[in-house]
Structure formats: C-alpha cells, structure tokens
Amino acid sequence: RPRTRITDDQLKILRAYFDINNSPSEEQIQEMAEKSGLSQKVIKHWFRNTLFKERQ
C-alpha cells in the first residue's frame, strides 16, 4: 500500500480534533474521515503516531 500524503487542509482538521481530544470515538473518526477525505485507518494511525510523539 502506498504511503498516504496528508495535505495541509487535512492536517488542520486532524489537529483541531487532536487539540480537543487526543482519543476520538469511532463516531468522531468517521466524521473526520468524511470531512478530510482520509480513510478511518489513516486517521487512527495518525492519532496513534501523534500521541506517541507528544508523549516523548
């Protein structure tokens, strides 16, 4: 599977949600997927990776 490139606009959407809640529900993930055009799997990975980076 090729690597997914996240655009600046998509990143703004993900960051806005992350700043509010770094552990989103399935409904929130689905909402982000619809708004951003990214798959739910990509969003879950982004949140997991970003949370890991923030904790270091």
Rank of each mutant, 00 (worst) to 15 (best):
P2S: 14
R3H: 13
R3E: 14
R5S: 14
R5F: 14
R5M: 15
R5C: 15
I6S: 04
I6E: 06
I6G: 02
T7D: 15
T7E: 14
T7Y: 02
D8P: 13
D8F: 10
D8Q: 14
D9I: 11
D9Y: 10
Q10R: 01
Q10S: 06
Q10A: 02
L11W: 05
L11V: 06
L11D: 09
K12T: 10
K12S: 09
I13C: 06
I13K: 10
L14V: 04
L14C: 01
L14A: 00
R15P: 00
R15E: 08
R15D: 06
R15W: 07
R15G: 08
R15T: 09
R15H: 03
A16S: 15
A16M: 15
A16F: 07
A16Y: 12
A16K: 07
A16G: 13
A16L: 10
Y17M: 14
F18A: 11
F18K: 10
D19E: 14
D19M: 11
I20N: 13
I20M: 12
N21K: 05
N21F: 05
N21T: 12
N21M: 15
N21C: 09
N21L: 08
N22H: 03
N22T: 03
S23G: 05
S23K: 12
S23W: 06
P24S: 01
P24R: 01
E26F: 14
E27M: 14
E27P: 04
Q28V: 11
Q28L: 08
I29G: 01
I29N: 02
I29W: 06
Q30F: 02
Q30D: 02
E31I: 09
M32N: 00
M32K: 00
M32C: 06
M32A: 01
M32Y: 05
A33T: 13
E34K: 07
E34A: 12
E34G: 13
E34R: 09
K35T: 04
K35D: 03
S36Q: 03
S36R: 01
S36D: 00
G37A: 06
G37H: 07
G37V: 02
L38H: 00
L38Q: 03
L38D: 01
L38N: 01
S39P: 08
S39K: 14
S39Q: 00
S39M: 15
S39V: 09
Q40H: 06
K41M: 07
K41P: 03
K41L: 06
K41Q: 04
V42H: 09
V42T: 10
V42M: 11
V42E: 13
V42L: 09
I43G: 00
I43E: 00
K44Q: 03
K44M: 08
H45M: 10
H45S: 12
H45Y: 11
H45C: 06
H45R: 14
W46I: 03
W46G: 01
F47A: 03
F47Q: 03
F47K: 01
R48Y: 03
R48H: 13
R48F: 07
N49K: 15
N49F: 05
N49C: 07
N49R: 12
N49W: 07
N49M: 08
T50K: 11
L51R: 08
L51F: 04
F52H: 13
E54L: 11
E54W: 05
E54H: 04
E54K: 06
E54T: 05
R55C: 13
Q56R: 11
Q56L: 05
Q56G: 02
